[in-house]
């Protein structure tokens, strides 16, 4: 099997449903049926039963409530308000827009840095060097620390009086900002913590993808005289692109709704500079108990996330197609 052929079979139907998909069912209809039911149906049924079984009701509940003025504490009579909550939220003077801006900056800067760091470290860890095993295990520790503890630790590390970080900066003669109190810095201080906590996820996922890459494709390319960069760009990158898509997708989805870290580090302050959308939703949902309003905000967040994800997928699909073209 040549590398070209192998790639063709990797690529097929991964995102688009191509005619090559036929190959997959090779082996006959019979192999694909169990107890008279299509095998693929039996295989996906449990997942969808459990996921939608548990989430359809809450999701429906949220959609219905988003059309009402429901307040859990109960002194205001319940009434349907149609799209009123959505209109309030989307109004230009709405506080939500501030949160939207903060959230986008938080997620984009954060995920971008995580991706760059994640890919670099994955490539580094894919090489042989002393202490590699330890670094691989060690990198995961930030993910294991309970969020409460990591939030508190970073909060104290950043603190201008008690913190080691400003202290070290002073020791070298510079003047540190109030990391969590200065409106210009707070968001990036929080992003740094998020990168610390989440980039190991990228590293491990991308590393696993790199390791699944067949060695002989690279060897073949090297024999053909390809430089290290060419090998990476033309062979490695296309190979791991699907995993990159998935990793970016999930990190973006999670970053757009990050809550715990921000709650612990700044609770949205100073002012509203770190009030991400989920902080906004938390305040209105669990401090004000305005469930109707909160549900509407959540659904808007979901729709926005959806759009961003589709955009992501498309962008990467196009890129992937280009890579394939240059290859051929």
């Amino acid at each position: 099997m040549t590398s070209g052929e192998q790639h063709a079979s990797f690529e097929q139907g991964r995102i688009s449903e191509g005619p090559q998909g036929q190959i997959r069912t090779a082996g006959g209809e019979q192999r694909n049926r169990v107890l008279g039911l299509p095998l693929h149906f039996l295989l996906i049924a449990p997942t969808f039963l459990i996921v939608f079984g548990l989430l359809v009701y809450p999701l429906g509940h949220a959609i219905v409530l988003s059309l009402s003025n429901k307040i859990l504490t109960g002194s205001v009579p319940f009434k349907w308000v149609g799209l009123g909550n959505y209109i309030d939220l989307l109004e230009t003077k709405s506080e939500m827009w501030t949160s939207v801006g903060v959230t986008l900056r938080f997620a984009l800067v954060g995920v971008f840095l995580e991706f760059i760091i994640g890919l670099s470290l994955a490539l580094l860890l894919n090489r042989e060097f002393r202490g590699r095993t330890w670094l691989r295990v060690g990198l995961l520790v930030p993910l294991m620390v309970p969020p409460l503890a990591s939030g508190l630790i970073w909060r104290i590390i950043y603190d201008d009086e008690f913190g080691i970080f400003p202290h070290l900066i002073r020791t070298v003669g510079a003047n540190p900002p109030i990391f969590l109190g200065d409106p210009d810095w707070a968001l990036y201080a929080v992003v740094a913590t998020e990168v610390w906590r989440s980039s190991p996820f990228m590293v491990l996922v991308l590393l696993a993808a790199l390791q699944a890459q067949p060695v002989e494709t690279i060897e073949a390319a090297e024999v053909d005289g390809a430089s290290g960069w060419q090998v990476f760009r033309l062979i490695t990158l296309p190979f791991i692109t699907p995993v990159i898509i998935v990793a970016l997708l999930f990190r973006t989805v999670d970053a757009l709704r990050t809550f715990d870290l921000i709650f612990l580090l700044t609770a949205g302050g100073p002012g509203t500079t770190t009030e991400v959308i989920s902080m906004f939703i938390y305040r209105w949902g669990f401090r004000h108990f305005k469930l109707g309003f909160t549900s509407a905000a959540s659904i808007l967040l979901m729709i926005a996330t959806l759009i961003i994800c589709i955009f992501y997928l498309r962008m990467l699909v196009v890129r992937q197609a280009e890579v394939q073209l240059t290859q051929e």
Partner: peptide, 8 residues
């Protein structure tokens, strides 16, 4: 009259 850090 408070440390600068007090704003956080």
């Amino acid at each position: 009259i408070s440390p600068p850090a007090a704003i956080s």
